[in-house]
Design a protein around this nucleic acid. Sequence first.
DNA 1: AATGAATGAGAATTCATTCAT
DNA 2: TATGAATGAATTCTCATTCAT
Lengths: 195, 195, 195, 195
Amino acid sequence: MPRTQEENDRIRQAAKDNIRSAAIAIFIEKGYHDASIDDIAKRAGVSKGLIYNYYKGKEELLAEMVRTRIEDINHVMQTAATLDTPSEQLVHIIEGALHNVQQHPNVYRFYLHLQTQPEEDKVLARYSQMLNEAMADQFEVQCDMFAKLGDKDERMTSLYFSSTLHGAMQMISTYPDRFPVDDIKKKIIQQFCGG
Amino acid sequence: MPRTQEENDRIRQAAKDNIRSAAIAIFIEKGYHDASIDDIAKRAGVSKGLIYNYYKGKEELLAEMVRTRIEDINHVMQTAATLDTPSEQLVHIIEGALHNVQQHPNVYRFYLHLQTQPEEDKVLARYSQMLNEAMADQFEVQCDMFAKLGDKDERMTSLYFSSTLHGAMQMISTYPDRFPVDDIKKKIIQQFCGG
Amino acid sequence: MPRTQEENDRIRQAAKDNIRSAAIAIFIEKGYHDASIDDIAKRAGVSKGLIYNYYKGKEELLAEMVRTRIEDINHVMQTAATLDTPSEQLVHIIEGALHNVQQHPNVYRFYLHLQTQPEEDKVLARYSQMLNEAMADQFEVQCDMFAKLGDKDERMTSLYFSSTLHGAMQMISTYPDRFPVDDIKKKIIQQFCGG
Amino acid sequence: MPRTQEENDRIRQAAKDNIRSAAIAIFIEKGYHDASIDDIAKRAGVSKGLIYNYYKGKEELLAEMVRTRIEDINHVMQTAATLDTPSEQLVHIIEGALHNVQQHPNVYRFYLHLQTQPEEDKVLARYSQMLNEAMADQFEVQCDMFAKLGDKDERMTSLYFSSTLHGAMQMISTYPDRFPVDDIKKKIIQQFCGG
DNA sequence: AATGAATGAGAATTCATTCAT
DNA sequence: TATGAATGAATTCTCATTCAT
């Protein structure tokens, strides 16, 4: 007697999730190139073959991961946009970003690693670019916020803001134990969400 | 007619340099993993075997590269230290850093990529760490500068400064054509080398 | 409410036939090796599992196919044998053969491909051999026909006839659009069914 | 001290030849799909890696083989063309073809197998087609011969001739021990090289 | 000092087959 | 009877490294 449609869907979804989680974990631990399908299969506790049942290959696992990442970024931006004042919006972005890096420095590290992939890497260049574009989108949204904040030179300020914020994120992910996140957060808020 | 000792040394050194240059170029173009020894040999115009004559393997070529990089960083810091005022010193660091990234965005990209290597990568983690330590050294030197500048909270300022500077460098290397380097440079100088 | 025995048999037979048809179609389109069980299951509109319910594996599907082929060949020969004169009998064979190839060049092609399978192919060699034996049987029957036609050297004539006929079939299947089937048919009939 | 250029060339050529021979032998024994690179490496007594040093992959080994085959076919045709009378020319073609199959039935078998590859096989279809084209070229040359022989309907005769000849070849390769090659050869010569 | 032929360990991927439901 | 999730053995191909010359 075959399983019902629903049951199969459930099993499939569980298996996919399981594999995706394992892949994410392994990618973050070892990096994309060093992670083998075998590693992922072992971590997920499934056979190599099953991974190919659900994903076209290693690259698709990365694609899924990047897609999720971009959605997360966009989600933060959209939530920010619902807040009342530009000042609060920027604070939300800052806190979201720094909190995230602080909680998962390796994840930020992974994506920064991906973004800095040599452009010649035919496989990864696409994902690198997708992340850069997401950052560019984020930048545009920030420009609006600074404009609403009364900034006359909002593009320059947004750039400077992004530099500072990403610099801080980079530092946090590099020295996760030593970096005084809260103090830096205050400084950034004070500098850019000034009022 | 055997070569003289000196002549041999000269030949050896020239060959080593040649190989190192080729390796650097290829690593930066393709990244460490994607660069093959064959690529490097071809670029250097020598045989694969010769590379192993001078270097223990691929990894040692990277080690050499990282060593040079760290020396370059230290060199900038030392030169800065010879300047008269802390303000001039910081300006020198800023200009050196930004100019460098602007001239060779891919080089900065390469090292940032290396620094963000997953820690589990047994081969590369060491180099990642070495670069981080160099950055930490740089940080300490900067602290002195900010202290001399009269800053009471020089460690925090130095951190914030490093964040901002590295953030800017990251942005330049990501968007080399669109980023207004000079404007940002001015802003950084104004903010940190202030008065 | 359990099904009756008959009903079950009917269902089983229908399912088997369905699968066999799908397998034949896929085998002919893609060849044995390139055809996947998945392809066959999709074409038949059943699950992979069901195929294994009715057939031991991929090979048995081929076996079934070859069995049918041989039956078809024998059927043509038997029908020929019911005709009155040896001349008519041979004409029937020729027309049957050429018509068949002309209608389904890919089918002939498939079996010729199978017959020319390397002998070492442990899986397929058996089927190759079965087809060759069927051809040998056909040859014997033809010998009788040529004998009845008054040929003193009937084995040689039958061989020459088979060569010519199979050569023509090979040409038709290779150049299905360009080959003047009817003209060649006439020539063969004229040459061999002459008297 | 490195080897001289010549010495290397010699070594390379020997290795290539060795690999090619092994590949041909294995392909003929097991067929293209069933032959693994491992098989070929073992037969050649070299490592798998070396094969990829000399050939882009499995397909290139086949390509080389097919190229040689076509050259051989063309060579027979060209040699035939140098003979004085069309009758002698045709006899030369017949003898060349039948002798060849008789000596190496498995080789003929291999190429017929290749020619009958399903068209959907994306890898092999090209080679199949190349062989068919070589056969078509051969056909055109034969037409001229029959024309010179005074045949009014030379294209039809050439087709019929080709059918008969290829049919015989197919039979020889199928029943190499039982087929009376010389007798059939005489019959073909008698039928087509008139005089 | 210099060469490049040769190796072999390891990676991604495919697919016939099994088996719990 | 029927399903399709899961397996794992086999295969192609890559590349850092070795070593005879």
